[in-house]
Design a protein around this nucleic acid. Sequence first.
DNA 1: ACTGATATGTTATTAAGTTACATCAGTTGC
DNA 2: GCAACTGATGTAACTTAATAACATATCAGT
Lengths: 137, 137
Amino acid sequence: MTNRETTTRETLTRNQTLVFDALAKAAGPLSAYTILDKLRDDGFRAPLQVYRALDKLVDFGMVHRLESLNAFVACAHPHCGQHGLIAFAICEKCGHVSEFSNDVIEDQVRGWAAANGFKPSKTTVEIRGNCAKCLNS
Amino acid sequence: MTNRETTTRETLTRNQTLVFDALAKAAGPLSAYTILDKLRDDGFRAPLQVYRALDKLVDFGMVHRLESLNAFVACAHPHCGQHGLIAFAICEKCGHVSEFSNDVIEDQVRGWAAANGFKPSKTTVEIRGNCAKCLNS
DNA sequence: ACTGATATGTTATTAAGTTACATCAGTTGC
DNA sequence: GCAACTGATGTAACTTAATAACATATCAGT
């Protein structure tokens, strides 16, 4: 239903590693340009270096793209294998992103698709709002 | 759960009408810049004219923004009053967008939010894939 | 060493969205 | 009528996001 791993991941290239590490150690999602800035010292000069690495990482399922933010996060799941549809809850105050998967939503999407002859390739579910921590402060 | 109408709509301004009509008569979603081009003859010169109108129209619930496309569509529902969460199925071949609402998904989102102390303000559900028509051709 | 596939580097360009500032039109209060 | 306020508009400049085009490098397999 959601994105499948189309490429076999063996080893990350240098650039992919740098981009992934930048995302992994960040508190929240980063835009491609923010990543670029963080990696200037590692020799990154142009957006394309970041976008190319991101494309692969998303393909591998190690990174998710947040459509409503034009930004990217490292996948929260340690070994990031197969999971179904993933939903994101994005705090508009602190920027924190919670990732969860939900089979019921996935079934509903599949159901609508089946009923309408639609063949889904990727499903985006993003909830914008305020997280518990920010609401209590 | 999803976006609420925060502004009371009475009459559309000239620019809002122009932008809405452009969207309403389009077959699929349009980007802000595409709208701008269509409205050059009506005196539009700058992106901001489009964005300002779009902001209001989205506020009124007459237009939806497709996050995964950076584009906008006129709402499919005639009187576009209250509906709950709206999902979009977007054909990547022909660009056609189907809009549907789904209470089960809305409940799931609400449920997760309640369990996690998250207060949602807007929920995005976008399914990318291929529509029935395109699959049979 | 030669070939093909993948990864990289670099420049320039297109697309998307915002900031800042000036103006204009309608309304409300006096 | 006129000041004061509010919302809509126009315009230029700018930032941010993403891609196109082209050159080069790296490496596996033969």
